[in-house]
Design a protein around this nucleic acid. Structure first.
Lengths: 347, 347
DNA sequence: CCTCCGGATTGAAAGGTTTCACAAATCTGG
DNA sequence: CCAGATTTGTGAAACCTTTCAATCCGGAGG
């Protein structure tokens, strides 16, 4: 266009410009920003006025470069479309707000189960020198996490207990969760129970299944009373598919109850049951896992294993912030889940 | 456990160290990073080896400070716990991945309907000099957004059409959405319809209600055939509460159908109906809005107004990236929603 | 044998902030 | 009214990259 057309774009004022316009030194402007108490009320007011006039916006890159510390935390979540993880994130936000006094931001990154995306985010975050990384990893034992931590960016693993004790972590006792879920089904009179999930690929699911087996054993039932319906992922669609397979089994061997690896799967199963006119819980009792909000809101409210989601998030942030303290030792916190009984299992 | 045990921290290698160790100049190291083709294969290999050995991690702050450009986009979402927004975000991630060739990251920020939190995130993002901001604002006409855009950070408004044309935006025609929802209910024989939502505080909800009124008018029904049940927010709990109020109305004036401002509310209503033994759709037909995945998965699958969620996200990113092109003009893209009819309205 | 050329490499400046040792101004109280 | 303490303010260095003009070098062309 023309010379400077519409804007005249004054080319973004920096602290230097503010200093000049306010008739003080650069250092004083910095003090106004970082140690307001070290500067007299009069000059402070003057500088702040000028900042407003000049629409000064502090350059965080420069700040961080010089100061060395960052003011952002990041949570790399496994699945942004699963309400469980957004609830965990909400807990983190609360903790960050509380701890940071407005000086700490939490950014969310969604790996969506893709290792490549996860790695890309981790790389970027490390380059950014964020204050810390919270992550529910695709593979908790991947070497990358250890390397990052070793190079100095604190890492806390969320909802997974890693093999070693090389990180802080927060998790929930999934074996116990599986156990109470299936124990409840057994108490309701079921002795042939479907397990729906992808226990071969996901650590937590493996644990939940282990707990299920333990409950069977405790009740004196043979392990083959647990009927595996393996899914590829843990979505509503997977649950629907498993429901169809389940319904297709001959009545003689068809389980009368199902323990689903998470609530999404359980909701899918529930939907298939409704379509096929199977009554829940009379024809099919269902237990989910996570107790997401939609579990209670289902038309047949879902019995589910509740995890302290927000607490998980809050604790994770607290552990992360504690990492920078002097004599820090990694801690693995494990919460205990509880069974929330609703209509989907009560005849 | 070995040589440098816990302390010793070799103090993170910078490009200078890499240059020294590789026996080349600083500039060459930079070239390896930024213009690999400008450097001979031999030296390039050498430098890359050294980088790996020294565990060099590029300092993004310094890079950005000097280079001036950032490689991150951010989406400030209104409600991370509403699957609608996480789906929009997923669309954005796809578009960012596609456009950036691995060089563009999308960070998510959750304002959770809190203006203060939104403002804090916006401030931080602007200071960070991010490449652009996508936002579903609490208040789309807040001055802050205009200021940020004016100061040079591109802003795209998502799922809201702002008053003026001072931003790019993507949205869905909510008036039309409300209209087709209620037209459908009227076609199903209903002539007294509840509207459940907080239309006084949220722009989209206002529009959806307007559409509802328009449908009534078109059918020759008086506007008072729309019965307002106003909620404070749009959560499942709000839907439950509204359901109880609805059930408490005398049968003579109780609506036989409800149009809910979003699916969360509809699911809450559905749940209350189940509790109170009201059959859906016989005693109460329900239409939701957004067509989130859980809408189809409800035990009575929900009729809902579908918005092209991922498309919304993708388009938003495309608009954002286009902002930096030479003669850019702001565009407001409006998509048309469609009605997805399911069991909750079909008798 | 000399010049010129282009690809590879170099060196130094620049980018906006924080920090820190220090100077100036003001205050304390003897 | 002065020594010393305290409060304010200053100036320059440092943080780690990117960028760009300048240099270097081996070889092609004359």
């Amino acid at each position: 266009m023309t010379v400077q057309e519409s804007g005249a774009e004054p080319k973004a004022a920096g602290m230097k410009d503010v200093a000049a316009a306010a008739g003080v030194s650069l250092g004083t402007v910095s003090n106004v920003l970082n140690r307001p108490d070290r500067v007299s009320p009069a000059t402070r007011a003057k500088v702040e006025t000028v900042m407003a006039e000049l629409r000064f916006v502090r350059n965080e890159s420069a700040r961080q470069l010089r100061a060395g510390r960052s003011r952002v935390l990041a949570y790399v979540m496994l699945d942004g479309s699963n309400p469980f993880f957004t609830d965990v994130a909400a807990g983190m936000e609360d903790a960050a707000d509380a701890a940071g006094e407005g000086d700490l931001s939490l950014f969310l990154c969604n790996s969506a189960h893709q290792p490549a995306r996860e790695a890309a985010y981790l790389g970027r975050l490390e380059q950014q020198r964020v204050q810390g990384i919270l992550i529910t990893p695709v593979d908790p034992d991947a070497a990358l996490l250890g390397e990052i931590a070793h190079r100095g960016t604190p890492v806390v693993i969320v909802d997974r207990t890693p093999g070693g004790t090389s990180h802080c972590s927060v998790a929930v006792d999934d074996v116990y969760g599986g156990e109470i879920a299936v124990r409840h089904l057994i108490e309701q009179g079921h002795d042939r129970i479907a397990f729906i999930g992808n226990h071969t690929t996901v650590g937590q699911v493996r644990d939940r299944r282990l707990g299920a087996l333990r409950a069977l054993r405790a009740a004196g039932l043979a392990p083959d009373r647990l009927v595996d319906l393996t899914t590829t992922a843990l979505t509503v669609a997977d649950g629907r598919g498993a429901g169809e397979r389940l319904a297709g089994l001959p009545a003689s061997i068809r389980p009368t109850a199902a323990f689903c690896a998470n609530d999404l799967v359980a909701l899918g199963l529930l939907q298939t049951c409704a379509n096929l006119r199977m009554n829940v819980p009379q024809d099919m009792a269902i237990v989910g896992y996570d107790d997401i909000e939609f579990a209670a809101a289902a038309a047949v409210p879902l019995t589910s294993v509740r995890q302290p989601r927000r607490r998980l998030g809050r604790t994770a942030v607290e552990l992360l912030l504690a990492e920078s303290e002097p004599g820090h030792e990694h801690r693995q916190v494990v919460f205990t889940p509880e069974l929330v009984v609703r209509a989907s299992t009560l005849r």
